[in-house]
Every structure is written in structure tokens, then in C-alpha cells.
């Protein structure tokens, strides 16, 4: 049966291809992009040097000179938040990239290989899921000490099992489809099956999962920094900024409020963006 096509040329805009976002998703994306840009250019546009004491008053109020007040030493909070974006966004992005790359590769290999390899790997990684994430971080950092590479690797290790589980479940479904069976019957190699047949078909949901995992990592990193074992002074990510200034809480100091708001805007906007992804990307395998 022939499908009748209209002869008029149709411009393939995102909307016509089914890739358009609604306005909630657009706001989310805008906030995410904003923080990413700040993470790169933050230190250059900061009005004061982030590590320098610029005000004699501690826990100062919001003024024209210090937009978000000053911290417990009299440093400018606005500049420190701009600098902190680099740590929070940078460390989280690096670990989520490692966790998802590892999880997805192992997940696809396990799904295609099956058998003992799949069973042992699944059992082992499921067991690691049985350790609460913050606790895992506490134990490792207690043992090897805190530095940025250690934080990135630890966070990646904590969230790799979840990513593996997700990718494996998707890959098992794709692996059972006819076109993969055909490719296998053609005699294609395992790497070909993984990268050409399976990977493109699980990419959409995996990217959505990456976004959610990014939120978990931001929360865990902030929690670790808040406990004092994350990013070490004099540097500070947003969680560490809250910890430093927690004494100002009973004074209602803006120094505690604004770093918290920064974390909340980032995590909530990622959630908003992921929740409103076009179904074509999110549920591609279904």
C-alpha cells in the first residue's frame, strides 16, 4: 500500500519532528545553561575576588556593593557563589559522565553477553546499591582523604550501579528485538551489535537518566561538602558555602540563604527539564 505524501516542501523544524519542549522544559533548560555558563566564566565576572576579605562586617546584609551580603569572614557571597558554580557543576558533571559511561557500557555488554558474566556483575553491582550513598562517600573519604579527583571518582562509583541497572534493563529489551536477531544471524561481531544496533536505540532514555543522576550527584556532593568532607577550604562549592555560614542561620543571614537557593534552582530546573522532555526522546525504546 502506498502512503500518499503531500507534495509541498515541509521545513523540518524541531516542532514538526516532535522534538519541541513546552515552556516549563524551556525554563529548566535556560536555568541549566545559565549555570553552565557561570561555571565557565564565573570567576571573571565576579565583582570581588572570591577568596578576599572585602568587608569589615561579618554576615553583612544585602547592599549595593555586596549583592548577596557577606560571609562569616566578610567575603562577598555573590562572588563566592559564582566561583562555587565551577565546583558544584564541574565535579557533578565529571562524575555523572564517568558513572553513566561506565554503567551504560557494562550494562550493554552484560545484556549482550548474558550468562555468568551478566549474573555476577548484576549481583555485585546490586549489592553496592545496598549501601546508602552519603554513607559510601563518608567511608571512602574518611579512608583516603578528600580531594577533587577522589570526590569525582567516589561519586561516580556510588552512582554507577544505578546507571548500569537502568541501561542493562533497556539493552535487554532491545537485544530481544528482531533487528538485533537478524544482525546476529548475519554474523556481526559483539562490538558491532553493541554500538550500532543497541546503543542508538537506548540513547534517549539513557540521556534522561543521566539528567536525574546528575541531580542525585549534586545533592550527594552538597551533602558531603556540608558535612565538611567535600570540597576543602579555602575553596568552596555551594554545599560548603552553606556549612561555612551555618552560624549565621539564627541571624537570618543572606549568606546561608543564597547558596541554598543556588543548589535548589539547579536541581529543580534539571528535574523540570527532564520531566518535560519530548516523549520521542524519553521513551524512544517503547
Amino acid at each position: 500500500m502506498m502512503i500518499e505524501r503531500s507534495s509541498a516542501f515541509v521545513i523540518p523544524t524541531p516542532k514538526r519532528l516532535g522534538y519541541s519542549f513546552n515552556w516549563v522544559g524551556r525554563i529548566g533548560l535556560a536555568v541549566i545553561l545559565f549555570w553552565c555558563v557561570i561555571a565557565v566564566i564565573g570567576p571573571w565576572i565576579a565583582p570581588h575576588p572570591p577568596g578576599e576579605i572585602v568587608d569589615w562586617d561579618y554576615f553583612g546584609p544585602m547592599t549595593g556593593d555586596f549583592w548577596m551580603g557577606t560571609d562569616y569572614l566578610g567575603r562577598d557571597i555573590f562572588s563566592r557563589i559564582l566561583m562555587g558554580a565551577r565546583y558544584t557543576v564541574g565535579i557533578s558533571a565529571a562524575s555523572v559522565a564517568l558513572a553513566c559511561a561506565g554503567g551504560v557500557i557494562f550494562g550493554m555488554v552484560a545484556a549482550v553477553a548474558g550468562g555468568w558474566f551478566d549474573m555476577i556483575l548484576s549481583r555485585l553491582l546490586d549489592a553496592f546499591n545496598g549501601i546508602p550513598s552519603l554513607l559510601f562517600g563518608l567511608v571512602v573519604v574518611a579512608a583516603v582523604g578528600s580531594s577533587i579527583p577522589v570526590l569525582i571518582l567516589t561519586l561516580a562509583a556510588i552512582y554507577l550501579p544505578g546507571s548500569y541497572r537502568f541501561a542493562r534493563a533497556l539493552a535487554v529489551n532491545v537485544n530481544a528485538t528482531d533487528y538485533v536477531t537478524v544482525a546476529r544471524a548475519r554474523g556481526e561481531s559483539t562490538p558491532y551489535l553493541i554500538f550500532t544496533e543497541i546503543f542508538p536505540n537506548i540513547l534517549g532514555p539513557v540521556l534522561a537518566d543521566l539528567g536525574l543522576r546528575f541531580v542525585f550527584i549534586v545533592l550527594c556532593l552538597s551533602g558531603l561538602s556540608f558535612l565538611g568532607i567535600g570540597v576543602q577550604p579555602p575553596n568552596a562549592d555551594w554545599g560548603a558555602l552553606v556549612r561555612e555560614n551555618i552560624e549565621g542561620l539564627s541571624l537570618g543571614a543572606p549568606a546561608v540563604v543564597f547558596p541554598s537557593i543556588a543548589i535548589a534552582t539547579l536541581t529543580i530546573s534539571v528535574n523540570m527539564f527532564i520531566d518535560n522532555l519530548p516523549t520521542k526522546i524519553r521513551d524512544r525504546s517503547e
Binding site: V215, L219, S222, G223, F226, G239, V242, I246, L249, V256, V257, S260, I263, A264, T267, I268, V270, N271
Partner: peptide
């Protein structure tokens, strides 16, 4: 979607 310490704060 916010950290526990922020709820406490």
C-alpha cells in the same frame, strides 16, 4: 530535589 540540609535550614 533539594538537599536535606536545605530543608533543615
Amino acid at each position: 530535589s533539594v538537599p536535606e540540609f536545605m530543608v533543615a535550614t
